[in-house]
Amino acid sequence: MFFDRTSSIVVIALFACAVAGYFIPDWIMNQLMFGFARALAVLGLLVLWRTGLISFGHAFYFGLGAYTVALLDINLGVSDVFLRLVGAVLVSGVIGWIVGFVLRNYRDIFFAMLSLALSMVLYGIIVKTEALGSTDGFSISAPTFFGFAPDGKYPLFVFICVVCAICAVAVQMYLNSTLGWMTTAIRDNEVRVEYLGLSVANAVHVKYVLSAVLAGAAGCLMAMALGQVDPDSMVNWTASGELVFITILSGPGSVIAPFIGSVVFELLRTYAFEWAPHAWQLIVGGTLLTIILFLPGGVWSVIEKVVGKKS
C-alpha cells in the first residue's frame, strides 16, 4: 500500500513531462523546469502546513541550497549535478537538523517569525559579504552529468523531473507511514498525541528536516535551471512569501498539488509581466487574496472536483 495511486500518477505524469520536454518549445520547458524546481520547496512547506505550521523563512533553505551550488562551483569547480545535489541536501539537512532542535518547540506565529528571523540573518550576511557575491550573486556554470557536458537544457530538465518524482513519492510514502499519520493529529490536538505515547517534538523535528532538505534541493535545482543565484530573489523575505503563496495556491490536498500550483504560478507571473508590466504585482497579489477568500483548498480542490466528478 506504500506505493499508492497518487504515487503512480506522479511518476507517470512527470515521465510524460520529461518525454514531452523534448518536443515542446524551450520557453515552455523552462517554465516547467522553474515550476518543478520550486515545487520541491513547496512540497516541504506542504508537509509542515499539514501540521499547522507555516514557515515565513523557508527561503533560508532554498538559498542555502542555491548558494551551496554556487560556492561549490566557484571555489571547487564542482559542476556535476549529483555532487551539487548531494552537497545542497547535506548542507540544508544538517543545518535544518540543528535549527530544528530549537524550532520544534515553536508553533503558530512564533514559528513563522523565528523562521523569518533566521532567513533574514542569512540575507544580511550574504548581502554584505563580497566573497559571497553581495547583492549581485553569482553565475553558475552549466551542469555536467558524470563528466559528460551536454548541450542545451533538456538533460537538466529530465534530471529535475526524476528528482521531483523521487521526492514526491518519498513524501507520499512518509505521509502514509505512522509518523506521517501523526501530521494532522498534531495539528488537531498535541496533548492527545502525547498521551498516545508519541513525541510531538520529535515528529515535528523530522518534518522540519524533511522540509529543509526539500527546500535545499529546490534551491539547488533552481540555481542550475537559471544559471544564477542572488540574494534578493532567493533569500529575502519576499522569496519566502512567494513560496508560502504557492503553497496556498496549490492547496494541501495532495503531493501532486505543489507541482501544478508552481507551474500555474510561473505562468501567472510570466503573463502578468508580459501584459501588465506596471501591474504584475497587483495581479499576483490579487490572485493570492482571491484564493484565500474563495478557494481555501487551492487549485487542487478545483482539479479534484472536476476530475473526481467525471470519474
Binding site: 537559471l226 544564477q228 543565484v229 542572488d230 534578493d232 530573489s233 532567493m234
Partner: peptide, 9 residues
C-alpha cells in the same frame, strides 16, 4: 526585481 528574475524574463 533582481538578477534571477531578469534571467527568467
Amino acid at each position: 526585481g533582481g538578477a534571477t528574475k531578469q534571467v527568467a524574463e
